[in-house]
Amino acid sequence: MSLLEVENACKTFASRQRGGDPVQALRGVSLQVEAGETLAIIGESGSGKSTLGRAVLRLLELDEGSVRMDGVDLAGLSPSELRAKRAEMQIVFQEPYESLNPRMSIGSIVAEPLQIHRKGLGAAQIRKLVIEVLERVGLPAKVATRLPGELSGGQQQRVGVARAVVSEPKFVVLDEPTSSLDLSIRAQILELLAQLQADLGLAYLFVSHDMHTVEKVSDRIAVMYLGEIVETAPTVDLFRSPQHPYTQTLLSARLSADPREKHAYRAYEGDASVRATPPQQAPA
């Protein structure tokens, strides 16, 4: 049994524009995540990758299909059972500042999961745990009294990570956790996430649009295109011998920072309103 098992997940959203076609964000997605591993979901805008990240945490309801955590079907849980289950499954968002309540101190933000899930703890114990986890994510204890707006983007994201791991989850969705950060900060956060995974045995679902990042962090990669997973493979295999033409296109769009490695972009189906080289194979 895998830690997380998603089967035939389907989700359709009503169109935002009146009279527009409904958007099929997920079209029968199945995947497994094993304990302690990182599965990356890579895709471009409109691929449904963020919807998938929220659906596996039941932050939105699926139209069809099931999500099982430790063999427990999340859809079968009552609201209070689901809330209790949330200690085990957490999320880190793309926008570090927006994901922190601007009116709460860093200490209160990180303490909140403990207040919810470990009701037996006294104020002093919570305080001790909060300082511990802040230090674990590389923040000095004194930031506990600060407000989110007083920290840098990188520090804010460390707080987001601290809040996600303080309740000792087994599984964390990372929704583009480094996309809005500067390059050098990005590397630090990725290192921190890898360290936490090694120390705490976390499993990650790493949602990203960036091949460079995904290559660095993931054990396996699932490529999403228009609501479907078109290819899943171990990271090394996917980069060495991408099978699906869309994966090949994504890889060809990477721009290497080494000017000696010239890229040659190969278009895939693409935007029909824009001229591009013809697709090599019809989409799956």
């Binding site: 390059l183 050098s184 990005r186 590397a187 460079h212 290559e215 660095k216 990271t235 090394v236 980069f239 060495r240 290497s256 920072a257 080494d258 000017p259 000696r260 490695e261």
Partner: peptide, 27 residues
């Protein structure tokens, strides 16, 4: 970009994963 002289440029370029290195890490 191939042979940066300034320390900051080196740091910037090193924070982008290079392909070969990464394959060594993951392999």
């Amino acid at each position: 970009m191939v042979d940066p002289q300034h320390e900051y440029t080196r740091k910037l370029i090193n924070s982008v994963p290079k392909r070969e290195e990464l394959h060594d890490v993951t392999a």
